[in-house]
């Protein structure tokens, strides 16, 4: 029975993802025939439907899906690598690092020669640097230390981000940055995919190449090493992959918290808790959840928009509290 569920999980999630994606394309203030609009846009027709689907809803949907998949997958990979159910891109400092990198570009114009790629590259570097510092500081995969090191790095990145905000050129720019940091996939064109998609593919490939290491790490670094796995090299590849995913996702969509924490937890019972089997389902469910959350955001009454990242945090934060509570009971 358990194995049957395991086998059906990925196809089931894939079907749900397609359903949610078409729902997202069809959902909005103006009623539009999705297929017609999509077809029209692909053929370059200048109709209203083609414009709404192709220029507004398609980018938004694709971004939500890819950002969600990136966050879900990196969460699953980091939890597996650190052998810690509390690891999450936001909690290990990667999100803050990426935000800092991207914000620096926003306001100080570094990497100006890269054009639109600049924020993404800076986000990537920020996430990678934050993860590396976190691993150096923690020294090992010991859960408590990783969380503490993540907290420390997040705090440092947060402080640096405050400095960037402090010296923002003008108050409007600062407000814009704050809104951006709250996380959203609205008003981004398809060109942001130029950055997101390759980073997503490379990051996913790096992580998926280390599935066996993640399986072996269930029993600790020593056992993994004794079974012929190269723990050091493989860990670096996983960190690099996560940095690609988180860095590009944050640089395009701001910080969308708790997806990476929540998603692997929801899936673990269905994959017999195996860290290597949770990866692909986590990417799919992450995509589904972020896209659903974005539909919910769009469904809110007009006026002041609730940001996507704020919504995921509202849902995710109580879950985190519950997780800590559960861990506490385990040790009592």
């Amino acid at each position: 029975m358990a194995r049957l569920i395991e086998r059906c999980l990925t196809p089931l999630l894939l079907a749900t993802l397609l359903l949610v994606a078409s729902l997202s394309l069809g959902f909005g203030s103006a009623p539009v025939a999705v297929l017609e609009g999509l077809g029209g846009w692909l053929q370059g027709e200048p109709s209203e439907a083609a414009l709404i689907i192709g220029e507004i809803r398609l980018p938004r949907t694709l971004l939500a899906l890819i950002v969600g998949a990136a966050l879900g997958l990196s969460g699953a990979a980091l939890q597996g690598l650190l052998r810690n159910p509390l690891a999450e891109p936001g909690l290990v400092g990667a999100s803050q690092g990426a935000a800092l990198g991207a914000a620096t570009v926003f306001y100080f114009g570094v990497f100006a020669s890269l054009g639109t790629l600049a924020t993404a590259v800076a986000g990537l570097i920020g996430a990678g640097a934050a993860l590396l510092f976190m691993l150096l500081l923690a020294g090992s995969g010991r859960p408590a230390l990783v969380i503490m090191a993540g907290l420390a790095i997040s705090t440092v990145a947060g402080a640096a981000l405050a400095v960037v905000l402090n010296f923002a050129p003008n108050p409007y720019a600062m407000q814009e940055l704050v809104f951006w940091l709250m996380g959203s996939v609205s008003n981004r064109g398809l060109d942001s995919l130029i950055v997101l998609l390759p980073a997503f593919i490379i990051g996913s490939a790096l992580i998926l190449s280390q599935r066996r290491l993640l399986a072996a790490l269930s029993l600790g670094e020593q056992v993994a090493e004794s079974m012929g796995q190269s723990v050091k090299k493989g860990s670096r590849i996983i960190v690099l992959g996560s940095a690609c995913l988180v860095g590009s996702a944050v640089s395009v969509a701001g910080s969308i918290g708790f997806v990476g924490l929540l998603v692997p937890h929801m899936l673990r019972p269905f994959v017999a808790h195996r860290p290597e089997k949770v990866l692909i389902p986590a990417a799919l469910l992450g995509a589904i959840l972020v896209c659903l959350a974005d539909i919910a955001v769009r469904g809110m009454p007009l006026g002041r928009e609730l940001k996507l990242g704020v919504l995921t945090s509202l849902i995710g934060a109580p879950f985190f509290v519950w997780l800590v509570w559960k861990e506490r009971k385990r040790w009592l």
Partner: peptide, 27 residues
């Protein structure tokens, strides 16, 4: 050729016994 069972092992995840034993085939 060389297999070792270290003294302090624990499983980070709630794996089944069969899955843990199967990990031994990794080499």
């Amino acid at each position: 050729i060389v297999g070792i069972q270290p003294q302090a092992i624990n499983s980070a995840w709630s794996l089944t016994v069969r899955d843990i034993v199967a990990l031994g085939r990794m080499p």
